[in-house]
């Protein structure tokens, strides 16, 4: 009995020895560039927000291992480094037969949104084979936001605000009003006003200092022209008449230009305000990561 046990023990030991040696030699030869290790390293880089390097690791891993999470992370790495077009293409590969299909579709739309081609984005949301059921509302929200940036007329508030929570409707209504009825100044009105009284158009556009300067300079030149003619200094008289005409015309043109700058500033400020508002709230999108 004891002999038999001894034999078994010896056999076990020898087997263990061989096993340990084999595993030791395997364990001792880590190929840092194997798919397994690349994946570990890629995940580490991804967690460290070193997305470009993570992307390269995941791309290599996917040559040997096909895994939805890795695909998602690869696409998301591209998204994070603002390579939106490539990100959208990679999210697309998860649309069918993947457990992450819905999330990939949402991220696809997010990537497409940040390409800033709003018309194309709205067309994409209509594509049936791209649509998401789980995140339909989120995509609709992005679609609504695009209307605030484009020159096209806004749809009805019922349609525009529908995907948003009630609590933000007041703010959206303010944006809607600002967009639909911007407080623009008319360049023609500014020009006409300045042609009547030099500087009046500038007052209309809110540039009071410029208005005073325009009025005084035109008036002073006109005075010099008249006084020189009165003093029989014809050359100087005509010179100042010419200068008065140039400054008078310049002020009319400048008032129209000031109105246009005023309008451009209103649009610029509005777009910045909208962008900031939605950016601060991550466009009301859930933070998706795997």
């Amino acid at each position: 009995m004891a002999n038999s046990l001894n034999k078994t023990s010896l056999l076990f030991n020898n087997f263990a020895l061989i096993f340990i040696f084999m595993s030791a030699s395997l364990f001792a030869q880590p190929d840092f560039f194997s798919a397994k290790y690349r994946l570990e390293f890629g995940n580490y880089l991804y967690a460290e927000k070193d997305y470009l390097r993570a992307f390269h690791e995941f791309r290599n891993v996917l040559k040997t291992i096909d895994n939805d999470t890795i695909r998602f992370r690869l696409a998301n790495s591209l998204f994070k480094i603002s390579r939106m077009s490539e990100a959208a293409d990679n999210f697309k590969t998860l649309f069918f037969g993947s457990a992450l299909s819905e999330e990939a579709r949402l991220m696809f739309y997010q990537s497409a949104y940040f390409l800033n081609d709003h018309k194309w984005f709205r067309e994409l949301t209509e594509q049936e084979n791209y649509q998401t059921t789980k995140y339909k509302n989120e995509v609709e929200r992005l679609k609504s936001i695009t209307y605030f940036y484009d020159k096209i007329s806004l749809p009805d508030t019922n349609i525009l605000f529908k995907p948003f929570h009630d609590s933000v409707h007041t703010r959206l209504a303010k944006f809607y009003k600002q967009k639909k009825y911007p407080q623009y100044k008319s360049p023609t009105a500014a020009a006409v006003l300045s042609s009547v009284i030099p500087g009046a158009g500038k007052i209309y556009t809110g540039e009071i200092g410029d208005a005073v300067a325009a009025f005084l300079s035109t008036a002073a030149l006109a005075y010099l022209a008249v006084s020189n003619f009165n003093a029989e200094h014809k050359f100087r008289g005509w010179l100042f008449t010419g200068l008065t005409a140039v400054f008078y015309g310049g002020n009319i043109y400048g008032s129209a230009a000031a109105a246009q700058i005023y309008n451009a500033r209103i649009r610029f400020n509005f777009e910045n305000e909208v962008k900031l508002y939605f950016e601060e709230r991550n466009y009301f999108l859930p933070r998706i990561d795997f």
Partner: peptide, 16 residues
């Protein structure tokens, strides 16, 4: 055996 194993793993690991 264990000592050898440890040595091999460490030495080989360090090599890599």
């Amino acid at each position: 055996i264990l000592f050898f194993l440890f040595f091999v793993v460490t030495a080989k690991g360090q090599d890599y």
